[in-house]
């Protein structure tokens, strides 16, 4: 079981760009702990920034994996930059827009934009930027061996791809 932090993929431009959506719901338990009512102050549920970074990492990771038809084991290697300037609250929607900046046999560099959609205003607003690097673990410099099966792109990832109409990328 892998916890997915994207709901669906809405745009896929081969070798270049992938955009995913995450709807934030009050039914998500973690929002009740982030932040609960305390010291007479009311609860203030907001989407944790760390999970938004994970959502972008999953988006950019799928894009990186798609470059080699998911044959490489792609793992998050380094977050060079992650800036999130606004909160996202239940009822809002997050859009992760990831682009490949550089690909190499050893790994890939990606840049991303995070936006939020507010149904009251009907508008998207940019709230963050990321730069995330991924490593192809079988090509690592240390020569360390990993299991042959691709443990990165598990069923959870495959289900999102299929549901988004991109199942053919795994063929």
């Amino acid at each position: 079981m892998r916890w997915m932090w994207i709901d669906t993929i809405v745009t896929y431009e081969p070798d270049r760009r992938l955009v995913a959506i995450k709807n934030v719901s009050l039914a998500e338990e973690h929002l009740h702990e982030h932040f609960p009512a305390k010291d007479g102050l009311p609860a203030q549920p907001v989407m944790p920034a760390s999970l938004m970074i994970e959502g972008m990492a999953q988006t950019a990771g799928i894009l990186t994996g798609s470059l080699r038809r998911f044959k490489e084991k792609v793992v998050l290697a380094k977050i060079q930059k992650a800036e999130i300037t606004q909160d996202v609250v239940p009822g809002q929607c997050i859009r992760y827009d990831a682009r490949i900046e550089r690909i190499d046999p050893m790994g890939a560099g990606t840049v991303g934009t995070i936006e939020r959609f507010d149904h009251r205003t009907g508008q998207w607003e940019k709230i963050g930027e990321t730069e995330i690097m991924f490593s192809h673990v079988d090509q690592n410099m240390s020569g360390q061996a990993f299991p042959e099966h691709n443990f990165v792109f598990s069923d959870s990832f495959r289900n999102v791809l299929r549901a988004s109409g991109l199942g053919h990328l795994m063929d």
Binding site: R102, G107, G109, M133, M141, S142
Partner: peptide
């Protein structure tokens, strides 16, 4: 660390 070498390479480019 090892991944930094790739980062340095990309940034030099």
């Amino acid at each position: 660390e090892s991944i930094d070498f790739l980062d340095i390479q990309f940034q030099l480019e």
